[in-house]
Design a protein around this nucleic acid. Sequence first.
DNA 1: GTCTATAGGCAGATAGAC
DNA 2: GTCTATCTGCCTATAGAC
Lengths: 219, 219
Amino acid sequence: MPSPTPLTETDVLAAIAPEGGRPGGGADASDTAVRIMLAAADAFAANGFPATTTRDIASRAGLSPAGVYVHFASKEVLLFELSRRGHARARDLLVEAARDTPDATTALRAIVGGFSRWHAEHHQLGRIVQFEFRHLSDEHQAEVLGLRKEIDQVVADVLRAGVAAGEFEVDDVRTTALALLSMAIDVARWYVPGGRRTPEAIETTYGELAVRLVRRSVR
Amino acid sequence: MPSPTPLTETDVLAAIAPEGGRPGGGADASDTAVRIMLAAADAFAANGFPATTTRDIASRAGLSPAGVYVHFASKEVLLFELSRRGHARARDLLVEAARDTPDATTALRAIVGGFSRWHAEHHQLGRIVQFEFRHLSDEHQAEVLGLRKEIDQVVADVLRAGVAAGEFEVDDVRTTALALLSMAIDVARWYVPGGRRTPEAIETTYGELAVRLVRRSVR
DNA sequence: GTCTATAGGCAGATAGAC
DNA sequence: GTCTATCTGCCTATAGAC
């Protein structure tokens, strides 16, 4: 059951790219290490983490099985690197989308729309980081959870700003933020390339749905 | 990394129970077959489908590895039976929740709230049927997809009824139905027993969020 | 840093006795 | 219908040469 459309290098690179000079980001990776990560993303997306063999990753990267272990201590560490970089990149995109918006409504539309589109365009990486989470070690799970909380926080902050400005009406900020993220994250689960919905259409539609969910009712 | 709270027999039984006399349902299963399904659900929930061994399933069911193959042709067929029964049960719950409601608003609150609560209470089975889908054979994927479309239809029908009655304002019925289901299904991904949110609170909150998402704005 | 070779173990599924 | 025993193959990870 191979993935219908293999990940392109550009696809994953855009999602796990080194975070530039931002403090707190991870260390840069060598060319070979990046090649292995791309190969692993491809293999995990096609078969899931437990069913993926190190032989498969190695051959996709043009290495012998042993060659992988020079760069990554284990298959699990490879999954962790993809998860960490994917989450960090998604968080950065959210923060950037919320910046320089005139009001909370525009900010919310931008971040939920953009996050939804990201989960369509990068649905294979999205499935890896969302659905293979349990296969990380306890320590690595904790580190990724920290990044997830940062992402929750970006959305919650926009909601609070909108409530304060009188644009939104929200009963429970944290639960509403979670529901908004659920809508976007779940795109990675059901999205199929070439289907009825394009990533651009998803961005527009889901941005509007987000605003509808929190808008103040005029009575 | 075992599951923190093993599935109880009651938990899964409530979700995969034989569908009674309803036409189109699957055949009944023997006591031993049910015991094996419960064991498999427990094991899949704890370790995921590919990482689960037939030996693990067998020992949880109190059988030798070979004993499983008398009742199920393969590990994949076991996953399929759980998926089929889980989806069918969820669909039935939705249909029942929508029945005998005075208006579309009440119906939508009931089905989205109920579906969300189901994904909290049965989050382990929910993860199996939602996240292990790719490991089904093509034929079995197609059969489960048919059940998913029925579920989509129940929600879409309520939305259309609400629009016709002037209760709702919905741009794109199918996309909105999908987004509502996404909110509910994603509960299975993040829910942890004993966390801040109880299944009952999730039912109430998500039912209200659903209504907010589609209510007609009064201007 | 990459290779070949392999250790050491476990997988899914089956044969045949009872 | 269930068992014990086993086939056949593949797995992750490592040792040691180059």
